Simulated scan of single mutants.
Amino acid sequence: MVTDAGQGVLTVDLDAVVANWRDLSARHGAPCAGVLKADGYGLGAAPVGRALHAAGCRTFFVAHLIEGMALRDALGAGPAIIVLNGFAPGADGQAGLWPVLNSLGDVEAHATAGRADGLPRPALLHLDTGMSRLGLDAGEQAALAADRARLAGLDLHFVMTHLACADYPTHPLNARQAQRFAAAAAAIAPGVKRSFANSSGIFLGPDYASDLARPGCALYGINPTPGAANPMRQVVVLEVPVLQVREIPAGDTVGYGAGYTAPRNVRVATVAAGYADGYLRGLSGRSLALFQGRAVPLIGRVSMDLTTFDATDFPELRPGCRLMLVGGPGNTPDDIAARCDTIGYEVLTSLGHRYQRRYIGGV
């Protein structure tokens, strides 16, 4: 077996994922699905999905058909796997996936296929209520409400919409979307179950409850209540070994563009992780790692495969020691995102595949 002394280790706490799912389900007061798109937000859809399924989760969402087929292989025939971006009738073969119908054209295609062979097609109907992205727009909704016979040939499991501003609790669009969704769902598909809240929507209160919530980021420890304390357990730790430590005199520079000039004699620790591994270039000069619980400042630019840190105050830090790039106090994905004007979602989904992934807990 070939080992790489410079390979970072990404540890995913599956027990924390499951605990987050249980907490979200309890808060919502109804079952929660597990959103596993983008390979489980970069953490591994198959192991995360198996842990959630073992804990009782029976509905999963992915973005693309290929993600759904891979998840079906990992989970077997039991759970519902729903493809948010939809797919053409029959494209899933025998995988037993459910499409989200995002337009009147999608409705017609799947309904026609269901009527043609007498096998109603299982699906979800997506109503756009303010995101202006996917989903039937107001005109399509009105047309479908006026002629519900167009749904013949479909086995609708849920009607859904997606909140645009749930992480801003006082934003007026939240209430408008709730009102629009309630009215449109009643007009188009009375009696069909509804799916409404995302991670942040679960925390908006009972007006945003439905038959099935769809948490994604909160499962993985991202704060669904920005501006307040994070109610979720942390899931991810990324540790990378130090390749080399060198001493440079005051006045020497570090990295591309000579972006850092040493104000004193400095010990520079170099680790094998860079923007090719999802350690974002925007963190250059703005972030830190943890060593034995203490902050080690990032100096110079993050490059493709290497990043440098100021180890001057850590005489015990040597090649082979590990720096924690993600995880620990003040260094969560949300903390890291704030340093380079992005969101924790991007931090997680950017994590590269050169890290060894290690899963703890679960089954």
Rank of each mutant, 00 (worst) to 15 (best):
D4E: 11
D4K: 06
T11L: 04
V12C: 06
L14N: 11
W21V: 03
L24M: 15
S25V: 04
R27A: 10
H28M: 05
H28S: 07
G29I: 04
G29H: 07
A38E: 03
G42H: 01
A45P: 05
A46S: 10
A46D: 07
R50K: 11
L52M: 08
R58V: 05
M69E: 15
I82K: 10
V83Q: 01
L84V: 00
A91F: 09
G96Q: 08
L97H: 06
D106A: 09
E108K: 14
R115W: 00
D117F: 05
G118M: 07
L119T: 13
A123C: 07
H126S: 13
L127W: 11
G130F: 01
L134Q: 08
A138K: 00
Q141V: 05
A143G: 01
A149D: 15
L151E: 13
L156I: 08
F158W: 14
H162F: 02
A166E: 13
D167S: 15
P169S: 00
P169T: 04
T170V: 12
A175K: 09
Q179G: 15
S195F: 11
A197Q: 04
G201R: 06
L204D: 11
A209R: 15
C217Y: 13
P224K: 03
P226K: 12
N230T: 01
V235H: 02
L238T: 11
I248D: 06
P249S: 11
G259K: 12
A262H: 08
A262G: 08
V268S: 06
A273G: 03
A273P: 04
Y275L: 07
Y275E: 07
R286V: 02
R294Q: 15
G300T: 00
T308E: 07
R322P: 02
V326D: 00
P329I: 03
P329M: 08
G330K: 08
P333A: 13
D335R: 01
I343D: 06
G344N: 08
V347R: 09
L348C: 13
L348R: 08
L351E: 03
Y359P: 09
V363C: 05
V363T: 06
